[in-house]
Design a protein around this nucleic acid. Sequence first.
DNA 1: GCGACAG
DNA 2: ATCTTGTCGC
Length: 218
Amino acid sequence: MDLEELKRIQIECAKKVLQTDDFTEVRLVGGIDLTFEDPKGNPTRAWASLVVVDIKTLKKVYSHVVEGTVDFPYIPTFLAFRELPLMEKVYLSAEVKPDVVFIDGQGVAHPRGCGIASHFGVKLNCVSVGVAKSRLFGFYKEPDVRRGSWSPLTYRGRTIGAVVRTKDNTAPIFVSVGHRISLNTAIELVLKTSMYRVPEPTRLAHNHLQWYLRNSCK
DNA sequence: GCGACAG
DNA sequence: ATCTTGTCGC
């Protein structure tokens, strides 16, 4: 693998990212998650799930799982080259498409402005939001401990994302624009879909995989 | 040069 | 990401 070449791909992808709201209504919100048979191994067997929830009830209205082989290692800032293929597969084969998709990882809060959530959105031309449990890039001040408060994630004076408190006295999550959405709307959507620390679409996608691997899969 | 570094 | 049950605390 030639990382310099992959960097150029990310730089080109970043140019196509749209950071304004480009949709009419949001009724269905989806979350995509991956799990690996051997996280350290390369290649390794892996599964991806897409769970779609109704934004009004936060109840699951659709879920889908696909299996595949992942043969690219985990390298910070190059996560998309490892996880994007399976994410594309689960999304493209889904019978229900959400209006917005939450992706585990960063969107534009990335050294080259193209984290996995943005890469996913641009490649599939859909509305996406980066929802990460930890920081990859940028600086911030700890937001207030109350649910709903947030502080900007910045780099060289520019806001690239937000550190959002989705639950009282609980570690915040890192939200950034994926594609075709504004940061303010992304934050609003994340807060609207969060009952716990991690927003429901993402949390349920993760739970669904755990359940799936204990049953249907052999 | 050294440390940091989504999942 | 994963190894892993009960347990402590709000």
